[in-house]
Design a protein around this nucleic acid. Structure first.
Lengths: 215, 215
DNA sequence: AACTAGTTTAAACACCTGTTTAAAATAGCG
DNA sequence: CGCTATTTTAAACAGGTGTTTAAACTAGTT
């Protein structure tokens, strides 16, 4: 295996578990059994390595997601929100074949990207992969046309939060659930449970903008 | 103002914006106009400072939350999920009177705590303030008794994720929304929009545990 | 005024960070 | 083989990290 890939494989697991700031190049290179200077030689800088790690996943995910969503949109009958969100399942779980624990690793990375390093990764993703967002918005709009663009914006970000946050701590949550409820669950099981939640959330009835009553 | 409080006031804003790992003691102490060694003198270590920052908010929030939830639970008629979640609004917004931008600062800190530093803050919160979780679970159970304990567990953590993640990036999201939709929104406005979402999510119909169909 | 306990200060500690350098090793090709 | 281009290596770099130290300073009390 090439040095470049050895670095990427070691980096994405460490980044997912300990964050971008929390992972040093020395950890990555010693885990990957390569020289410390290899990162700067092959990627230029740590920041570029982070981009490369995310791009490897996005390039695998983004086309599959796009075709799954366009399939939904072009169907004869109007899709339900549940169907729109279910379109994510296949592409996301495919990351597990692409790399071991790929799905949860990627979603953890996504979560890190939104909080670590002051949102430079959010900028990177929205500018490099804008289609993912617009396609998703379109699909939701078809499934629930009464929702204004602004409502969609907010509810999609709420959904983002639900998914990303859940997956960031999915290992810990699965452990707790296993202890408390004796119910063995994997990442697919968590996704299965979160889909009805976010579908119902996005599909919530529209509320008028009234001033809040401070109870 | 005491040195201790000067440190806490500077620390929580910096921690919220840049994360715990991303904020150095030198940033904190120079922002607070105190000597570098003051943190270790008054708090012992950086880790203890983090706990102190969180405790200051939790001690302000937790009793108000508890009484709001128990008020809901003891009411004559069964509360709706929307009412259960609305019980959070008052106590959360009160943090704004406790400290400027207290609400969003606290929620950002909560988000940081769940991802930074490998979940030691989650352990700290769940062991130090367990009542918040159990009271909340009870209230949801009254509002939606058909939900099994395990379903409640998952949906509450989904909700946690929605709130915490949204608030972690609330400033950025509010900026985007302001540019794209010319709709001025503050933290209270975001809360107002997220409540129907999480209420609908938690109130989603119960799904049987079928194996996933990989579309 | 003298002693004490609490606090603040500047300096140093040992260690870790991302990055760069120049020499050594490797591979590809005529 | 000999030459070239690519890659790997160990070492050093400049700067940042949390923490500790011992001296200086500040009240408060007798």
């Amino acid at each position: 295996m090439s040095t470049k890939n050895k670095i990427l494989d070691a980096a994405d697991v460490l980044f997912a578990n300990k964050g971008f700031n929390g992972t040093s190049l020395r950890e990555i290179t010693s885990q990957a059994n390569v020289n410390l200077a290899a990162v700067n030689y092959h990627f230029g800088s740590k920041k570029e390595l982070i981009k490369a790690v995310m791009s490897r996943y996005m390039d695998e995910l983004s086309p599959r997601l796009e075709s799954a969503l366009s399939l939904i949109c072009q169907a004869e009958l109007k899709p339900t929100l549940h169907e729109v969100f279910s379109a994510f399942i296949g592409p996301l779980l495919h990351l597990n074949e692409f790399k071991e624990n790929g799905t949860s690793t990627f979603l953890q990375l996504l979560g890190r990207g939104y909080t670590d390093s002051q949102g430079f990764l959010r900028w990177f993703l929205t500018t490099q992969y804008p289609d993912v967002f617009t396609n998703f918005t379109k699909a939701v709009n078809i499934a629930y046309p009464e929702l204004s663009a602004e409502e969609i914006f907010w509810r999609l970000h709420f959904t983002m939060g639900t998914i990303v946050f859940t997956m960031s701590s999915s290992e810990a949550l699965i452990d707790i659930a296993q202890n408390d409820f004796d119910n063995k669950l994997d990442i697919a099981g968590v996704i299965e449970r979160v889909i009805p939640y976010v579908a119902a959330g996005v599909g919530a009835p529209i509320t008028k903008n009234e001033p809040l009553s401070l109870v």
